[in-house]
Nucleic acid binder design. Structure first.
Lengths: 229, 229
DNA sequence: TAGAAGTGTCACATAACTGTAATACACTTG
DNA sequence: CAAGTGTATTACAGTTATGTGACACTTCTA
């Protein structure tokens, strides 16, 4: 749904400033105060992008960077380094150790946004799309609308998020647990069977204007979204 | 209609910064990295205004300027030169070769906006028209007037700003928090539910002369303005 | 300065959505 | 085909979000 940005910054004032701005811009924000915490948080939920301070307590930004690159899940996660010094040496070191971009403090928030978007566009274009289309089904995330062909379809919030998630990963099979994580949220306790019910509701809503069901049930595995070929 | 601004700037950071700000301000933005690209883009779609860096690869700003002036479509298009040097010589040369204004880097974004608006007002006043129309609803921002069809509608200040905001972003869903930010102001502490009340008041005022409600409630997300399709 | 207009909150009614459990159905396998 | 396992569907009760009128308070306006 929303891009998840992990902000690793030990300076409190800057951290809250960033958190405020990114939240407002529509990102999910995770905050870590040092390198170790960053690794933990990143393991818990893989970020879509990481902003990392160069100087960090416990584990420097560069080192954290290196370790993130060693992990499968974060190997290709874009990282932007925030550095106080501006000299060429740092730049090269930072980019060498796996950062994708860097910004020298003090930087402007709009510029940070611009770079963030640029990197996200490269790594996960679908996260920035406002309109996602699969076959004749189309959702507009900003407007919260769903269309099947030319007909508007009304969905409840959960069904909307569910469809959104499916359409961003067409063809892939998700277990009920994965769907709960992605659509309901990590720390929500809900029966796995509840997913079935919402899948049913989503199907029913779509069926009104579309004959073929785009959701495939994979017995004993989960569900997948696919437009019939 | 949004004004189309062509930004010609080879320095990436500045280019993204400008793109970001102009887009946010409601302009259509075209980006060119050098003089040649600028000429191509300008030929493709005639800009309403051009921001051009003085120093450019391939084709200097001054030269690009001259060539633009030779073309019929861009003969009267306002051009703002962005220059790093501030000396009188450059200024005169720049203006001689057809720039309408110039700014010395570093400049402030608001000032750039001000000059842009000034030039646009001179060349294409209609683009800055303070009348916004969506379907049969029309508001005159300067005069604080709202019309539904031919009937005047009276709105309180808050409802007016609310409608203004909605009509500038038709179709898009805004959360209560976003609306508070945009309509009430950043540092005003007001209950989120107060938005509901004002939405209600706005609806009631519009309903007097219009049967269909142009404001869509999106449960658990916020409100959106849209003229029924 | 009185009256009008506008503002922000609250309380309550209502509508929309959720999660669960029960039941019916489908598929697999021996 | 019968048992066993997994999924679809339905009904429902609980929960949450929204619509609205009332009201006290502030800010204009004549």
């Amino acid at each position: 749904m929303q891009p998840y940005v992990l902000i690793v910054e030990d300076e409190d004032a800057l951290a809250t400033l960033l958190e405020y701005n990114f939240t407002k811009e529509g990102y999910d924000v995770g905050l870590a105060g040092d390198g170790e915490e960053a690794l933990l948080l990143a393991a818990e939920r893989t970020p879509d992008i990481i902003l990392m301070d160069w100087m960090l307590p416990k584990l420097s930004g560069v080192e954290a960077c290196r370790r993130l690159r060693r992990r499968e899940e974060t190997r290709n996660t874009p990282i932007i380094m925030l550095t106080a010094r501006g000299d060429e040496t740092d730049r090269i070191t930072g980019l060498d150790y796996g950062a994708d971009d860097y910004l020298v403090k003090p930087f402007s928030i709009p510029e940070l946004f611009a770079r963030t978007r640029a990197l996200l566009r490269r790594s996960q274009p679908s996260l920035l799309e406002d309109i996602i289309r699969q076959g004749d089904i189309e959702i507009d995330v900003k407007a919260f609308r769903v269309k099947c062909g030319d007909t508007q379809v009304h969905l409840g919030p959960t069904e909307f998020r569910l469809l959104d998630h499916f359409m961003r990963h067409p063809g892939r099979v998700f277990s009920r647990e994965q769907l709960l994580d992605a659509v309901w949220g990590r720390d929500v306790y809900v029966e796995a069977r509840t997913v079935d019910v919402h899948i049913g509701r989503l199907r029913k809503a779509i069926k009104k204007t579309r004959k073929v069901d785009p959701i495939r049930t994979v017995r004993s595995a989960g569900y997948a979204f696919e437009i019939a070929a």
